[in-house]
Nucleic acid binder design. Structure first.
Length: 551
RNA sequence: UGUCCGAUAGUAUAAGGGUAGUACAACGGUUUUUGGUACCGUUUGUCUUGGUUCGAAUCCAGGUCGGACAACCA
């Protein structure tokens, strides 16, 4: 029979719930706070939540968790929507926690009426002090036993703007001795005279996360509210509010968040890199943000594949960046148009090819594609650019490329033999002189010669030029979060290298944004959004896998 | 020194009392007009101690290690 793919623990749970008839329809949600750009860790959650309802039916909502007006912006709402769409997912309803402010206010009233919430005038410090520690029970605030009427009146005063920020809060009355610190009378409403990106100045009190999230899930009839492990302790509170309010019992489940080597994943740290100008923006191609990866040349398919491969579990993890790179190489290998580009040029002169002659050669665009991706015309002439690293004056053993007296094939063209070379006064090689073998032409080779090496090249008189940006890992250590001191001390100073003038084959001048290209033997590249027809800019998405090691 | 969560090759992730499997990485080989791709092969693993059982990665108990929790953040 068909080999069944094993289920992750959430899928097993859902299959159980569906089979038992606990739920008829699966409803999930992706609930970002619009306070930054989405990153690859969010992609994991997005693929999980949307993937689940694609697999089992039902639907997924996009809900912005916008309960803190001071950190949230419409710019972020827009970018987050764009990123989810780009990843290839469609939400059923676009919702906002702020849509529920009236209902949440009503829930708070209900709690007060049940004697389960009170207005507290203690300062933040006093509350922290009274809270105790995990091993020492908390103490009651002097305001804890106010009458329901007084609490109702005070809470309405809060809502009506009669108090300044910080003057008081609404707290749930639960259990000051709970081993779960979150149950020690958590604050559920605070005063913030701040402009909200959607509700404007309609409110001056805002619900806390714990008083908004579960209830929002409940209002939307979310069956499986999936979040990351740091919310495990919140589950008790989540259930408590739902039980006390007697509303739809959404259930929370937690999985381990993604950590990736050589980068950081917290919005706080990413924001810091942006605001301190250590990267060019949220979409800097070195950033682990979705927009950064997109600009870097990653495809939605490759990111979805990555999220599929890393799996879902409850164990802390640190995924190797190499897996992400594998995913984009695998995807681009199938679809990227091949072309030749010389990044570190040195002149190669074919002494027996007339200086006034040139010819057009034909090259396949993609050896992996069914139809070879079609063909293109490549001009060839007396003077070429080749890669400096493809010539060695004193070749090491197993050297397949150019060296004095050695022969290599020029990709799509002829076999050449190195006859001599020139050096400048510093001993640097400046020019390589070769002869070509006319009967070795690609596709009609009758020379009988077999050479081990094939190198790429660009005809000097025909070459176009481009700026090429080479990216490397953002940090020089595997886990910047785990290091001592400021994470920014571990930034990789070589994370970006710019080649101002690379030579590219003429065909590449027509390269389109949004498509992947393979510069033969060099890696996968894409056209950067700063690029223009008169000033082409390519980003290196990822290098090719490099098995050759000298020695 | 409280509560909760977790522990399977280098990294992830399966096996739900019955042969420890898969992917990436690493290493070796075949093919190749990309030292790419493809294909083949190799190495490497159940944190620990006890218990239950014919049989334990799996169930139980203790330990060890790692993580989370004491924001008017989410």
């Amino acid at each position: 029979m068909s080999e069944e793919k094993s289920l992750n623990f959430i899928e097993e749970l859902i299959e159980g719930d569906l089979k038992s008839g606990k739920y008829e329809t699966l409803v999930t949600r992706f609930p970002p706070e619009p306070n930054g750009y989405l990153h690859i860790g969010h992609a994991k959650a997005i693929c999980l939540n949307f993937g689940l309802t694609q697999k089992y039916g039902g639907y997924t909502n996009l809900r912005f968790d916008d309960t803190n007006p001071v950190t949230e912006k419409t710019e972020y709402v827009n970018s987050q929507q764009e990123d989810i769409h780009w990843l290839g997912f469609e939400w059923k309803n676009e919702l906002y926690a702020s849509d529920y402010f009236d209902q949440l206010f009503g829930f708070a009233i209900k709690l007060i009426e049940k004697g389960l919430a009170y207005v507290d005038h203690s300062t933040a410090e006093e509350i922290a002090e009274q809270k105790g520690t995990p091993t020492v029970a908390g103490k009651a605030s002097t305001y804890r036993d106010r009458s329901i009427e007084e609490n109702l009146s005070l809470f309405n005063s809060m809502r009506n703007g009669e108090f300044p920020d910080g003057a008081c809060t609404l707290r749930a009355k639960i259990d000051l001795t709970s081993p779960n610190m979150l149950m020690r009378d958590p604050i559920i409403y605070r005063i913030k005279h701040a402009h909200h990106h959607r509700t404007g100045d309609a409110w001056c009190i805002y619900p806390m996360y714990d008083f908004a999230h579960g209830q929002s899930d409940s209002i939307e009839n979310i069956t499986h509210s999936i979040c990351t492990l740091e919310y495990v302790a919140h589950r008790e509170l989540y259930d408590w509010f739902i039980a006390q309010l007697e509303i739809f019992p959404s259930k929370q489940y937690e999985f381990a968040r993604l950590n990736l080597t050589y980068t950081v994943m917290s919005k706080r740290k990413l924001l810091q890199l942006v605001t301190e100008g250590l990267v060019s923006g949220w979409d800097d191609p070195r950033m682990p943000t979705i927009s950064g990866l997109r600009r870097r040349g990653y495809t939605p398919e490759s990111i979805r594949e990555f999220c599929e491969r890393i799996g879902i579990a409850k164990r802390e993890n640190l995924i190797e960046l190499g897996l992400l790179e594998f995913c984009i190489r695998e995807d681009l290998n199938k679809r990227a148009t091949r072309a030749m580009a010389v990044l570190d040029p040195i002149k190669l002169i074919i002494t027996n090819y007339p200086a006034d002659r040139s010819e057009i050669l034909i090259g396949d665009n993609n050896p992996e594609a069914e139809d070879k991706g079609g063909t293109r015309e490549i001009p060839f002439s007396h003077e070429l650019w080749i890669e400096r690293e493809d010539f060695m004056e004193e070749p090491s053993k197993k050297w397949f490329r150019l060296a004095p007296g050695a022969m290599v094939r020029l990709k799509f063209a002829y076999i050449v033999k190195c006859e001599s070379f020139k050096k400048d006064e510093n001993g640097g090689v400046t020019e390589i002189h070769c002869t070509y073998i006319p009967e070795s032409k690609s596709g009609s080779d009758t020379s009988g010669l077999h050479v081990k090496g094939t190198i790429h090249w660009v005809s000097a008189p025909h070459a176009a030029t481009a700026e090429v940006r080479l990216y490397d890992r953002l940090f020089s250590v595997e886990s910047p979060d785990a290091e001592e001191g400021d994470f920014k001390e571990y930034l990789n100073p070589l994370s970006m290298a710019v080649i101002e003038r690379a030579y590219i084959e003429p065909h590449l001048a027509k390269a389109e944004q949004g498509l992947g290209y393979q510069f033969i033997r060099k890696g996968y590249f894409c056209v950067d959004e700063d690029s223009s027809p008169d000033r082409l800019i390519f980003n290196r998405t990822v290098s090719l896998k490099e098995n050759w090691k000298p020695n």
